[in-house]
Structures are given as structure tokens and as C-alpha cells.
Amino acid sequence: MTSTSDTTQPNVLAQNGKPKILGFLCEWSLGRTDHIHEDGTVKGMEHIKTIKIPCSGFVKTEWVTVAFENGAQGVFILGCPLGDCHFNEGNFIINGRLEQHVGRLVNRKIVDDSGRVAELYLGATGNNDFFGQLEDFTKYIEALPPLVVAAKKPRAAAAKKE
């Protein structure tokens, strides 16, 4: 798997030959976890990069689009079990937002399959499920054709205001 050439599809595969996956991790959902390296890589799954956020409701749907435009093959959002959000409703809110946003991504043909965006809801005791679900997600993404999004236009407010 490591011999995959980088020339044809430079952005699609990670170092270990698996599709690049980006995850947003709610800091409350996984109990005292040491499954994540300092740089955000999941231990033993170097193709999965993660960003720690205060609540899954914090995720801007724009970031999901940006991730796909920059070569991510899949994006997952990890929140607490539904109904168990530390901030009352954050995971319900992201659930609703993603439902709309994924449809929008498919309609705009930015992604080919709505399964490229996954929502995982794991509590503090779900540390064991974490790797299993990520493996399933990776297998699902691997079965799909590589996704290359031509970044069509810069987003309206992309520039940072100083």
C-alpha cells in the first residue's frame, strides 16, 4: 500500500496509503483519552487527523467544505451521545446542521456520497468503539472512488479581517 504513487492524485492519500480523513473531536465526548497524538493524529491511524473543539456544535459547516476542497476523503464529527451533550443541545444542533449541509454538498457535487460525512456519538465509556467505528469509516471511504474537488471559487468571507 505504501508504494502508491503521489503524482497522479497528490492530495487523496495519506502517508500510510489510506484516504485522508479529518475529524472534529468534542473534548467532552471521549473520556480521558490518550488515543490522539499531540499533532492531532489518531494513534495507529496516521491517515486520520483530528482537531479538538469545545463542543460538536462548534463545528462550522464551512470547515467541512474546506476540508473536502483541500483533499479530505472523509470528515467525521465526534460528539457526545445524543441527549447527553455537556452544553445541552450541541450534538442535536450539529446533527441538524449536517443533515442540511451534506445534502447541499451532494447537490453542489462537491462530494459524491453523503456517507463521506460521518457523525459519531460516543460517551466517556466509548473509547473502545472509537477505533472500531473509525476503521469501519475508513473501509467505507476506501470503497468509494477518490474524491478530487476543484476549488471552484473563493468563499465570500474567507479573508481574515485584521
Binding site: P54, C55, G57, F58, K60, I93, R97
Partner: peptide, 11 residues
């Protein structure tokens, strides 16, 4: 409560 849910809400 500094959860950031509003940040995700604002387009």
C-alpha cells in the same frame, strides 16, 4: 458557557 455553538450557527 463558551461552547461555541453560536460560532457554528453564524454563516
Amino acid at each position: 458557557a463558551e461552547c461555541g455553538i453560536c460560532v457554528g450557527a453564524c454563516p
